[in-house]
Design a protein around this nucleic acid. Structure first.
Lengths: 247, 247
DNA sequence: GAGTGGTCTAGACCACTAT
DNA sequence: TAGTGGTCTAGACCACTCT
């Protein structure tokens, strides 16, 4: 286990207390000054911890009045807590404990098609891995993924990795860090191929997620288009208003 | 115009420079120490400004090596910059300059159905506004919205407001602040009513967005289910990995 | 080892809410 | 006016990268 930063430890502790019902919906949290004393932390550090929970959608802060647990129903609370733990993880980590299988339909090296080259910032015709997989959860096909990865940035990738976790190869073997993912969600009808692979009825709707993955040096290394069957697809986000200064 | 906080002003200035091409993809930004001198700001404040840009997906920071503009293609950059400006705004603000119309199909006060009462944290049977609207952009129907708002929290709402902007009534007249939105996206086939209102072909796929809006006191005041026609629906998000301390 | 960003502190001062 | 959270600073010290 990796040691937590102080503000993360404070946030984690408070999150646990919210999860355990020590602090309930609408409760006021201890004052900042009390939390500072309690955790032996400075004002900035406590603030940072609380900001983290605001970002995750669990609490609300109001200048002049206090910090409160959001009025959430049990199911939303559960989902938020789950969600905050699985933000940037691949499917393999997010669904730990389930039986995840990846069937590899294609694993080849090809010149990048133009739109792919643009997104991966490659010279037209640069070589990329082209990987097509069907991913199943507990035996049921859930998503159809077509992904393009820059050959140069991810050397030595094998079909073997595609069958398990490409991300663990990148992280554990290549020692590279994924910094961020840019995601675009759209909707359309399944193609005949998708209907076949995902065992969908004719004309079924699907969610199409376009993702570009970036390393911590700012380079995109993976562009993928993933089609999700509609019954289990659900994407959650929390949008929080920022500070707005001097009205 | 509202005065910007110092870190926001710095972030804004740097964002503008990225947009203007002063800093281009893969460029290294000035060192933190140089930015501190340039803006007359402390280390923490500069860091906060840069964190803001990281959050928006524009830059990448690497301890020991520097801060760099992400390697983005022009179209992604445009979208990100647009996106960062329209995070929490309603449709009316996000599409300023376009012709937005809301046709109100229903505006009534009813006892909250159970699932709605749960999400709005109301006693079963409490009264809520029930508003159904079709929203059109430049004359084309884009979304079908069914929304439930807590009567008690939003007094005095009239059909008139629903035809224009409910949010501006809440903000400007009631002087309430929207703190956050919890959003869930799903996919399914359009219902016959949706097909009719959105002028969709039979069996068309639609994106269904469930949103719960919270005030800055932590109370949910609006639960809405919005169906979007598939051709123009596109939802973007940026996920960024957090700090990870002491490996 | 020299240079980068990251965390944390202690405290001054500001903005907002409640009463 | 008392009490809340928010911003910003100056500086100590830490963690990582590069060469």
């Amino acid at each position: 286990m990796i040691a937590l930063l102080k503000y993360q430890a404070i946030a984690e502790d408070l999150r646990q207390k919210i999860e355990d019902g020590v602090y309930r919906a609408n409760d006021q949290l201890p004052l900042s000054s009390e939390l500072e004393a309690q955790y032996g932390a400075s004002k900035m550090t406590v603030k940072r911890a609380l900001d983290y929970l605001v970002q995750q959608g669990l609490i609300v802060r109001r200048r002049g009045s206090g910090t409160f647990v959001k009025s959430l129903d049990a199911s939303s609370l559960d989902k938020l807590i789950q969600h905050s733990r699985t933000q940037l993880l691949g499917m393999s980590s997010a669904y730990r404990g389930h039986d995840i299988k990846s069937r590899v339909l294609a694993f080849e090296i090809v010149p990048a098609p133009d739109p792919v080259a643009a997104r991966l910032r490659l010279e037209p015709g640069s070589f990329v891995y082209h990987i097509v997989r069907v991913r199943s959860l507990d035996g049921q096909p859930r998503s159809f993924e077509r992904s393009y990865m820059t050959l140069e940035l991810i050397p030595g990738l094998r079909e073997e990795h595609a069958r398990h976790s490409i991300f663990s190869y990148i992280r554990d073997v290549l020692k590279l860090h994924i910094q961020s993912v840019h995601r675009l969600v759209k909707v359309r009808c399944a193609t005949p191929q998708e209907e076949g692979e995902l065992r969908l009825p004719n004309g079924s709707p699907v969610a199409v997620v376009h993702e570009t993955y970036y390393l911590d040096n700012g380079q995109p290394f993976n562009y993928s288009i993933t089609t999700h069957e509609p019954d289990h697809f659900a994407l959650e986000t929390v949008l929080v208003d920022g500070p707005s200064a001097k009205r």
